[in-house]
Design a protein around this nucleic acid. Structure first.
Lengths: 208, 208
DNA sequence: GTATAATTTAACAGATCTATTAAATACAAA
DNA sequence: TTTGTATTTAATAGATCTGTTAAATTATAC
């Protein structure tokens, strides 16, 4: 007989954990601190999630999926490949902008914990195809037509991800190193959103 | 009376620590493990470096400086701005290639430990000017001549760093996710070295 | 109201980690 | 060989962290 089906406490712990994991990663976040910030007893964290690893996985897989699907296309028929790509870059950028801690968490945990990475390979085999396939055919058409210089879809995606992600990994560092205020950071982000599109679209050009 | 001026043990501990910090970062590396891998008693780590923080700082500042100076220009008079930029991108890429764990360490520690970042601001104030200033004037000349579309030196550097760094942050992940062998990774790296140059040079073009 | 189940708490076991200390050992100079 | 210093070791203090347990509290059902 479940009394409280969406237990406030369980949800609170989950949200607090998410916040702290995004800020400091798995290793530097203790269940003790999660409980303290959530304002509950430390044993409750283990009562609801048994282990810290379980709790982490509850937020991590969701975050990886969010990260990967940020590249997904919204199907908009009738617009040019360039326009479609522009929308994809911007949508990916906006997803990161709404989740600025995402790249740090994903890369940090995948690099430091190969086990997590291996586990992911099983769970996420669908994603690459989901992300790459729609764009791949269109890219190849454009290349065949001579509109775009030869490249693979992996090249294109890696470029998009590199430019978009690195901004959000680096901006907390700029912020302190260059002593920027929130407004200046916001301005930088708005500017780079446009700049990344320009860089990528120009880089596709075929100089025969 | 110092008997062993460049104590083998001290150097061994330092090198072991560097290796482990690069692999797993500060939090996941214990002085116990450093001693175990170095094959010495754990108290020795503290005998030579007193604290884990000290030991970390001994490797970290050097790594940050390496990371930042990777962008420094070798002065080659008489070559075009484009050629100079190409050399800079390639030199930066090669530095990363020789130190693939560097970006992870630097970003991870600067993001998770704001104290380190603030301390850095004091120590590294010279670096931005050292890195940016030589290129800045030349970029502005090219823009004034209409050879390059308007942009700031910060835009250009951020683009270079984004494309180069992300490859080395992401490639250990590709390696496992896409099940690539060493040879395939090496091929990817060689390819992206060229690709990054192409992307950046093309992205500079001024379409009037 | 009482029995029952869910939630919360305090206390703690066991592990690990950083750092220190005091003793043992190796080494260099006299 | 003796003496003083540097290096190394074992042992341990003290802190913190994960996860468990048993008891207390709260909520629900009858």
């Amino acid at each position: 007989m479940i009394i409280n089906p969406d237990s406030n406490t369980e949800q609170l712990i989950l949200e607090t954990a998410e916040k702290l994991f995004l800020e400091k990663g798995f290793a530097l976040t203790s269940t003790t601190e999660i409980a303290r910030v959530a304002g509950c007893n430390q044993a409750l964290v283990h009562y609801y999630f048994r282990t810290k690893e379980n709790l982490f996985n509850s937020v991590f897989e969701k975050k990886v999926r969010l990260f990967a699907t940020g590249l997904l296309q919204v199907d908009q028929p009738g617009i040019s490949f360039e326009q479609k790509l522009k929308h994809m870059i911007e949508a990916h950028f906006d997803m990161l902008s709404a989740n600025p801690g995402l790249p740090f968490l994903v890369f940090n945990e995948l690099i430091t914990n190969p086990e997590r990475l291996k586990k992911l390979r099983g769970n996420m085999l669908d994603l690459p195809k989901l992300v790459f396939f729609p764009l791949k055919a269109e890219l190849e058409v454009e290349i065949a037509k001579g509109n775009i210089r030869p490249m693979t879809i992996y090249d294109l995606i890696l470029t998009v991800v590199s430019l978009n992600v690195m901004l959000f990994i680096a901006s907390p560092i700029f912020k302190i190193l260059a002593d920027l205020n929130e407004e200046a950071i916001e301005k930088l982000i708005v500017h780079r959103r446009q700049e990344n599109v320009t860089i990528i679209l120009q880089s596709l050009k075929n100089n025969i």
